[in-house]
Simulated assay, not measured.
Amino acid sequence: MDLKLEVIVIPVSDVPRAKAFYEKAGFRLDIEAKPSEDWHCIQFTPPGSECSIIFGKGMTTAEPGSFQGIYLVVPDIEAARAELVERGIDVSEVFHDGAGVFLHGHGKGDFTYPPGFAGKESGRHPDRTDYGSFATFTDPDGNGWVLQEVRKRLPGR
């Protein structure tokens, strides 16, 4: 069976504000439909992605800003961060996982580690290990995005 992740529905409180943010971030507007006052759907696709995001009015009952750890894989973390910053997006400094464990998101854009682990360290991973360098940003509602540098993907990806 071949399953492709196509769309993620994210919760937002202000549809026009979210639309302006994702346009500024360089996401491609695919569709906007508003057949009634109770339903407004906007779909954007991040550059180079096969998976899109949808948000709007009547799209989800999830709390705005409650989605954390939405990963965007990039081949060059510094270049991706610089482009977003140039577009006016507030992006964290690049950091790496000093403990070598998977990041855990707890709250609006805050990534923490299990007790006893070293946690995040400033800068790109010293060995530039794939899946090892990160930067984060949030949309206006606090939905948390993670840039992750991957130059060579795991087999089967």
Rank of each mutant, 00 (worst) to 15 (best):
T112C: 06
S36E: 09
L3V: 15
K4L: 15
R128K: 14
V12Y: 04
D90L: 09
S92A: 03
D130A: 11
P155G: 03
P126Y: 14
E32N: 01
E23K: 11
G119W: 13
A79T: 14
D141Y: 08
P11D: 13
W39S: 08
L29K: 05
G58W: 14
C41L: 08
H40W: 12
E37I: 02
P64T: 10
V101P: 00
T112S: 09
N143D: 10
F44K: 04
T61L: 06
E23N: 08
T60G: 10
R28H: 09
R17T: 15
G26T: 13
E149A: 03
T136R: 08
F44E: 08
V73I: 05
G100S: 12
E121R: 05
R153V: 14
F67K: 08
F134G: 00
V15Q: 13
L147E: 08
Q68W: 07
V85D: 01
V9D: 07
R81A: 02
I89F: 12
P155K: 09
L103S: 14
E86P: 00
H104M: 15
E6P: 00
R17A: 15
F44L: 06
G56F: 11
F21E: 01
T136E: 12
H104G: 13
D30E: 14
G119T: 09
T60L: 07
D127G: 04
G26N: 13
F134M: 00
L84H: 06
F55G: 00
M1G: 13
G107D: 14
K19Q: 10
G116A: 05
P46N: 08
F95M: 05
A18W: 03
T129Q: 09
E86F: 04
R87M: 04
L72A: 02
N143G: 07
I54P: 00
V94G: 00
Y131N: 01
T60A: 09
P47F: 15
M59K: 02
F27N: 02
G100W: 14
T136W: 11
L72Q: 03
I77D: 00
Q148G: 01
P46R: 08
G132E: 07
I31Q: 07
I77N: 00
